[in-house]
Design a protein around this nucleic acid. Sequence first.
DNA 1: CAGTGGAGGCTTTTT
DNA 2: GCCTCCACTG
Length: 737
Amino acid sequence: MGAQQRKASSARTQILEGLNSAQREAVEATDGPLLIVAGPGSGKTRVITHRVAYLVSVRNVSPFRILAVTFTNKAANEMKERLQRLLGRASEGLTVGTFHAFCARLLRHDGKHVGLDPNFTIYDEDDSLDLVKRAMEEAGIDSKRFPPGATRESISRAKSLLQGPEEFSRTAGGYYEQVVSQVYERYQALMSSSNAADFDDLLLLAVRLLDGHAEVLERYQERFLHLLVDEFQDTNIAQYRLARLLAGKHRNICVVGDPDQSIYSWRNADLRNILSFQKDYPDATVINLSESYRSTKTILEAARHLIAENRSRLEKELWTGRVKGGPITVYEAYTEEEEAHFVLSEVKRLVQEDGLSFKDCAVMYRVNAESRALEEACLQHGVKYQLVGGVRFYERQEVRDVIAYLRLLQNPNDQVSLLRIINVPRRGLGTRSLQGLIRWAEEQGLSLPQAVRLLGWKVTEEKTGELPISAKAANSIARFVALLTGLAGEGQRVGVVELIDRVLVDTGYRDYILAQHQGEERWENVMELRGIAQEFDDMEPGEGLAALLERLALVTNVDDYDENADALTLITLHQAKGLEFAAVFITGMEEGLLPHIRSMDSEEELEEERRLCYVGITRAKDRLYLLRAFRRRFMGGSGPTIPSRFLGEIPSELISSPPQLEQRSPWGRWAPRAPDVEREGLAFRAGDRVRHQRFGEGIVVSCQKADTDQEVTVVFKGEARVKRLLLSFAPLEKLED
DNA sequence: CAGTGGAGGCTTTTT
DNA sequence: GCCTCCACTG
């Protein structure tokens, strides 16, 4: 045995150590197509990372020739970190990233073949929606009859099916599709004149590039000897096509996924890809990772029964060597407030009595609206919480404004960004001027940014013949153009942080923000953006800006979830995918919420709701709570709810329920304690028993200052909803226990 | 041209 | 019930 072989052999032992036989098989099956079906908690990430490490250290594959794609930046970063630990410096040569980031890189490099300049701008959904609205306006389509959002979704769907405007129009059937097709065509024209690509374009154009340009295709096919696709059940048609193109030469394509965890069909993920894979690669090895290390037997059994109700599904084995564990708690609260209080008291009990930390617990729900009651309960119980999602950093107006300026400096043809900030801060360019400008641009056959530049030039050179807008507005345009030109020049000389500072000062944006309501807070957000830019400040002037913008476009909503913060996690079921917690609470187990009302008319959508529930259940390691409220306020109304059918699909012997509704008074179960802060001067605290002249006896949920008055929230006996009363008006009498 | 009020609308949201 | 979007008014 040579030294080389010995080294490989010892690396092999090391890499395979601690893996079960199926996992080993998946790591070692390096030649040819491979489909890994990985149930929840089966060590999927472990297998992927060890497989890559195996390729590099045992099979001596150059890291440069391995591509691993994921869906989220979070997953990509996690993978990178783990590979760094396994491989050390060798991991730096690997290509690990999201589909979109990979495509963006591809297009920056070779996009000219499909009509993109290297400095193209990536439009997110909001930008895209703006552009759809513009396209509809231009096409004279009534946005009341054809909601722009739905139109955008139709276009997005078409793109993810690799249909361009022409093809879409050819297959367009009904009147609605005809209209969409018209908008699609306009939209794409605007997109192209803006030198921009939306998220779907990144995939679509990458496919076009590879499909239509043999020499480019060959280059990438040759390079990537091994391809790995994570979360394969979430790929759409374009993504799968891309993967197939890339693996076209060497055919070493490994896809990992779990069809039972496919919950993104509404984002055009196409479960059929798994079936197609087996058809396209009939020689594919299929490995099922059937041992689960996460959940107790009871929890896994509940999940298994639930998912077995789905008809369109492949039966698969999943077992665990873990303990049986305690029963699943199903709790039927009276109101959503009580539901939340039950969760909070239970979380506190788990922390105090069972030695869990807050970070080991998570509350999961179908819709974000449910988080409200939970947040309030957290405040009342004095429990720190981490709300995942919500208003995201990059969606804040002020952050987007600043980004729009930066984008415009990078890509002067970016129409969406131009329109966003042309009158921010106010430059006296209102709707009237803009309409005139847009009409003029159309007449001249120019894009809006081109028209703006031309007009600015005319004014400066005093070549003003007939102006399309008032002289005042035209002068304002000229100043605006000069401002941008100046800043763009600056961008060639200084680092990106200084550039941002110049933008903020020279455009007057700083003063504009600070003068606003909550200006300080908004300014803080701008400064946070500046903080992010610092990472790119050492780069060459132009490149720092480009890199920053790429990051801002593709790494949205900063992975705001901090796994180490000692706080209770509040999260949607969708976002919970890929996470695990010792204790999981799923709220809103009601017909209409889970399954959601909008998913109840079709069998497919209903099955996706069931998968969503399955995802939630299988996040739990040791304890699972399923909750519902007998009455819930929703969309203004409030009424009795029906227990979710999913509750009935879990065998009752796995469930234990605290006393049910009929057997107890609705408020007797919990006595929430108010947090020890900010209780000064308040007339009541949470948990106090009170009497009201008209409403009778009740329990205080919260009491807080409201201007000079205090607002008391009370659940009254026999009342479905909590009441919010003002202390000065409400005849409330405190009862002693 | 910009701030306010009334009507309508409403899941999920990897990139 | 709460937020967003647009239309109207000052």
